[in-house]
Design a protein around this nucleic acid. Structure first.
Lengths: 132, 132
DNA sequence: CAGAATCCCTCAAGATACTG
DNA sequence: CAGTATCTTGAGGGATTCTG
């Protein structure tokens, strides 16, 4: 049997990779990883996301079966978003990535400074490394 | 201590996530995961990548300390690319993602069809439709 | 509150051509 | 072979406005 080849542009696996490539989608997955959230709560949680991108990304995540959308007929209407079982497994996998990032961010920044020092970096760099 | 918060736009962790978001970078990481490759070999391996994006992405991966570039003074010149130790650990982490993708592509495609069909059903279908 | 619909504009990526 | 240097485009995303 043939395994999916991510190097071929039309490969389904490639499509998943592209979804991960969507920064907003990943942030939503992470945000919902710690529990159900309403639309505006999600918007407040993820700094700088526009409501357009939020609703658009949520819709495509729902379409992929990763996020569940529940509407409650209150006044005004209430909409809750949560991860499906499938979404939860992806969210956990993505979390591995953020763990890697947190563990290795220091090495990466060190490498960058080394690199920039080797090439024609004429600017006196004053960047502070470390957490947020 | 303060943990990195990926929801803040300037967070280092967010920058790593964005790097993963770079589809070409991920494909290069995967390609080099199975061994050293020369520039044009890499280009042949990854369908549809332009030489511009290849050299550009390689440069930033090198800057991040993920990829090692070695030049041999042959005629014409030979350049070999390989993963650093750091790059290898990231490549393996990314591989988890492709494994997830291969395992769940069927569920996702089923969900999409359900959604496109007027979002009536809620039954989880386990049928696999993947494969390139 | 939870979105849909518009306009608008940048900038990332492709195509092409040239070089050491 | 292994790149660099321009030019051009188009679609992704921001800002804004409107609605059930």
């Amino acid at each position: 049997m043939k395994r999916p080849d991510p190097f071929q542009a039309l490969c389904p696996t490639r499509r998943i990779l592209d979804r991960i490539g969507d920064s907003w989608a990943v942030l939503i997955l992470i945000a919902l990883g710690s529990g159900t959230l309403r639309f505006n709560a999600l918007k407040r949680r993820i700094e700088n996301i526009s409501q357009k991108m939020l609703s658009q990304t949520l819709k495509s995540l729902e379409r992929d079966g990763l996020v569940r959308r529940e509407v409650f007929a209150t006044v005004p209407v209430t909409v809750e978003y949560s991860l499906t079982d499938l979404g939860r497994t992806l969210s956990q996998t993505v979390n591995q990535l953020t763990l890697w990032a947190e563990a290795h961010i220091g090495e990466i920044e060190a490498a960058q400074q080394r690199y920039d020092r080797g090439e024609g970096a004429t600017e006196p760099e004053g960047r502070a490394a470390g957490g947020c």
